[in-house]
Amino acid sequence: MTYFLQQLINGLQLGFVYALIALGYTMVYGIVRLINFAHGDVFMVGAYLGFFALASWGLPFPLAIVVAMVGCAALGVFIERVAYKPLRNAPRISALITAMGVSLFIENFTNLNFVFGPTPRAFPRPFAVRTFGLGGVEITNVQLIVFGVAILLMVGLSLFVGRTRTGRAMRAVSQDRDTARLMGINVDTVISITFGIGSALAGAGGVLYGIAYPQIQPMMGIMPGLKAFVAAVLGGIGIIPGAMLGSLIMGVVETFTSAYVSSTLRDAVAFGILILVLLVRPTGLLGKSHSDKV
């Protein structure tokens, strides 16, 4: 039982980091129907911004998260304006290919020696790691911080989308862009805000990832990005609570696969879930099936 609980905590830690990335995927998809493949790389840039904030500028940890979030929000809006906005009315496949291009560009550009460089860097821990025993289960302060910050941001996001005027505008655009525009909503601004918020969450995710797994390099966003994408599909892409649920399930399933089956099957199971969901329930766990407008 202790073993089970311990592995559950390990799985939740992974799941919360996935969740912060998956939220960005799902929000952007919900509004512009685009899988933003560059999202995992925005997450990587967030980790580097956090690294510079802590290691080079000596900022305290909460401020490092803010720096990463603001920087990534700006990057997300910039990417949207430069790469996706000109393609707003192009076929969806064009935007998808552009997203892959942006992703490859960010990875390889930051891999250059005068940007971040290919050499991995040790992410500084602004505090010592402490382990707490809870009835035989061990939990570290790093895990508690990951849980705490992730939950806080998710609650904040839910309130923002559910309770504010901008949030209502976002929901309206996601339901029907043209009608929303007729109602006087500035669709372009709403889309930019969506990219900004999604990217800010990924930036925070990058910093949390950095303190949980303290080494960063320019290709670090690829795998978590893919896993978070699967998580978003699992929960129902475009649905915010679905992304959270899907991510926690992904983290726990991956960990339990390693714990009880075999670690070599870990990724096979993760991507097997994607295939299974697409076959059995393409709209995801929380998705409602609806026929597309013609």
Binding site: Y3, Q6, Q7, N10, G11, Q13, L14, Y209, A212, Y213, Q215, M219, M220, I222, M223, E254, T255, F256, T257, S258, A259, S262, S263, T264, R266, D267
Partner: peptide, 20 residues
């Protein structure tokens, strides 16, 4: 006799198994 893949950064599940 467990493994992890490139790009994976969480080894806790495998290590916990080794511990027990």
């Amino acid at each position: 006799f467990e493994s992890y893949a490139a790009g994976e950064e969480d080894f806790r599940a495998q290590l916990e198994f080794a511990r027990v």
